[in-house]
Amino acid sequence: MFLINCPYCGERDQSEFSAGGEAHIVRPKQPTELSDDQWAEFLFMRKNIKGVQLERWNHAHGCRKWFNMVRNTSDDKIHAVYKMGEKPPIK
């Protein structure tokens, strides 16, 4: 059970949050220009990294804000959290 430092509310129990998968997969601005392959890349393909990953979390039972997290998926250690739109802090 992680202890997550919501950038808006502070440290809260994991049960207040929901995970939203890999971060920084930007929705294409012009989807119609994309091939099926490229669209599938956005839609389904994931790095699924074992190691330090940037990912989205939502404080669903709190402020309901989305934010990003730097977390190592091989030991679940959270290195940093940062707001949507911000650049990831150095890993």
């Binding site: 929901s18 939203g20 930007v26 929705r27 989205r56 939502n58 669903a60 309901r64 804000k65 989305w66 949507m84 739109g85």
Partner: peptide, 13 residues
């Protein structure tokens, strides 16, 4: 609601 909030906060802020 969650889905709409997600798009609003992350794709279309």
């Amino acid at each position: 609601l969650s889905k709409l909030e997600d798009y609003l906060q992350t794709e279309w802020p």
